[in-house]
Design a protein around this nucleic acid. Structure first.
Lengths: 165, 165
DNA sequence: TTAAACTTTCAATAATATTTGAAAGTTTAG
DNA sequence: CTAAACTTTCAAATATTATTGAAAGTTTAA
């Protein structure tokens, strides 16, 4: 396979994967491009390469910075801003886990806890409601704790754990 | 909090959580409703309760059955079909993991592997490309294996593992 | 059979999310 | 200062995805 073909294919696949996991396609593709680039890219270069508008590039770069997976850089003697991402897959996985935990698991935990304080567990429906939401809460708490540990762990520890599987 | 309020809140939250993870809102809400119900529900009842059209209910029930988390049932002396879901959170998590692995992780593994066979690693870009996609492939393979183990494990084993964390 | 009860399909519509591009804003060199 | 170089914003346009509802299809009881 030729380099440009492979590159396009990877960027495309990364975009699709992102979509399936609630991350917009442009954002995922932009990230893929930075992952492959041997040096930081300017907004201009990204626009050119991915054929997307300045506004879109800007918005998605900021979203990626917000997720903590893209950094702004400055080159000496250049006005322009350049952007890069860490090539460390492990660090990337940790950062994404950390953010999703904060943005999505924590809120559902809050709701599950609130909703438990429903009145009238004499009725069958209410008893069932408490049971199900209670179990979901316990399980989510365990997963939450696990992700927390994971995001604070180092690679060696994680790979050792994987061995035990 | 009053039961109906809590119920609505939970269904709503489950829908939002679903959306964030690439699962459509109706599908997630429908699942939430079945989770809470003390007995199987007919399409009619679901339409009524969630205020959605027959077509939508039908489509999403089929999608949930496709995911293996909702089952069709028949009541004696009734023409109608009834639907239910397992209340076992553990079983649910395993089933969802299994399906997402099959639908999303496996395809990206295929692409990562293909794309590795790019020609010309004498050039800097190509070398970087191989390095990054190679590391992603290794990492994804490990995660894939882990999920596979998880979906085949039993609850006790998993909770013991959690302890070690 | 057949007609009532129910389920499925799918083109049209509606809702949501993404993208654009031009104008406004900001920074810096001179 | 000020104008060029660059970044950000955001209303409008476009694209994508979800939902409806009515018609077509299927099953069953009589």
């Amino acid at each position: 396979m030729e380099y440009n073909e492979a590159k396009q294919k990877f960027i495309q696949a990364w975009g699709t994967l992102g979509s399936n996991w609630g991350i917009n396609k442009a954002m995922a593709q932009l990230h893929a491009l930075l992952l492959l680039s041997t040096e930081p890219l300017s907004a201009e270069e990204i626009m050119e390469e991915l054929q997307m508008s300045r506004g879109n590039v800007n918005m998605n770069l900021r979203a990626l910075m917000d997720w903590g997976i893209v950094q702004k850089e400055h080159k000496v003697g250049e006005r322009k801003e350049f952007f890069s991402t860490s090539k460390d897959v492990w660090a990337l996985a940790k950062q994404v886990s950390k953010e999703r935990r904060r943005r999505e698991i924590e809120p559902i935990l809050t709701v599950l806890e609130q909703v438990q304080r429903v009145s009238g567990d004499n009725k069958k429906e209410v008893a069932e409601f408490k049971k199900v939401t209670g179990e979901l809460f316990d399980f989510s708490l365990k997963v939450d704790g696990m992700i927390d540990k994971f995001t604070k762990s180092d690679q060696t520890w994680f790979y050792k754990l994987l061995m035990k599987f």
